[in-house]
Amino acid sequence: MKKYTFTEKKDTRSGFGAGLAELGKTNPNVIALCADLIGSLKMEAFIKECPDRFIQCGIAEANMMSVAAGLTIGGKIPFTGTFANFSTGRVYDQIRQSIAYSEKNVKICASHAGITLGEDGATHQILEDIGLMKMLPGMTVINPCDYNQTKAATIAIADYEGPVYLRFGRPVMPIFTDPDQKFEVGKAWMVNEGKDVTIVATGHLVWEAIKAGEQLEAMGIDAEIINIHTIKPLDSEAILKSVAKTRCIVSCEEHNRLGGLGDSIAQLLIQNDLVPMEYIAIDDVFGESGTPAELMKKFGLDDLHIVEAAKKVIGRKG
């Protein structure tokens, strides 16, 4: 298995902040909006760079989304920033009518996504946001896996015409992707080529999948690991090519098992190549308070659960 190491851990939201600050220097049309969460979204550097292009919206997310939609009329590229919960569920109708249906070039940037938000508990741990957003026609959904990828994705979506949902997180995680990577929307990243099982992972679960891959290797199982950072549009070709070889697949995401990446893959397989599949996802329950690591373990999202799922799905190949 290809070796992945890290020397530093950072939160993906800081990758967003770094990418946004870069855009502050390079793209005069980028406008940042925030609903009273500048520190949490790591927007300070952007604000320092271009204070006039930052709009504080206060605790009023519905207004922020529609103001962002209006800003596109005149060629601005608004990036909204708040927690994932308040970026999606709370403002779904605003996004649906004024952004998605109206085909507006708004970048909805959502931090503290998933269970690893941690101690704040279920009120803030949205586990339905990928599903909500991928169901909107024309919406692109991206969930990068580490600091570097999040930074690259943030920069890339400024030049990608159309509404985008960019989802990232709160906890520090290993930085293991290339700092100079070019982020291509909709293009899967081959983390490790293998032949026995395909493990497809998004967001924080990519590092867990790499750790699982190393353990599987020690057991003599050669796992192919694919990072799907863009959940919609899905890189169908990469997934189908992989399962044509491995004949089984495990999907891994920090989201409800209903409506997330796994369901998109299952739909693809049903229509094209029906191979055994296992889900690593939250089992249709609300979250709870705890540290990110405790929650990943309790809700079955860590490397050990991926190893078990991989063994199980290989056993189902028959």
Binding site: I31, R53, I55, A62, N63, M64, M65, S66, V67, A68, A69, G70, L71, T72, I73, G74, G75, K76, P78, D93, Q94, Q97, S98
Partner: peptide, 15 residues
């Protein structure tokens, strides 16, 4: 939603 949208468009004009 329209008041917020109009505000956004008005801000774009200022920019």
């Amino acid at each position: 939603q329209g008041l917020s949208v109009a505000i956004g468009a008005a801000l774009a004009k200022k920019y």
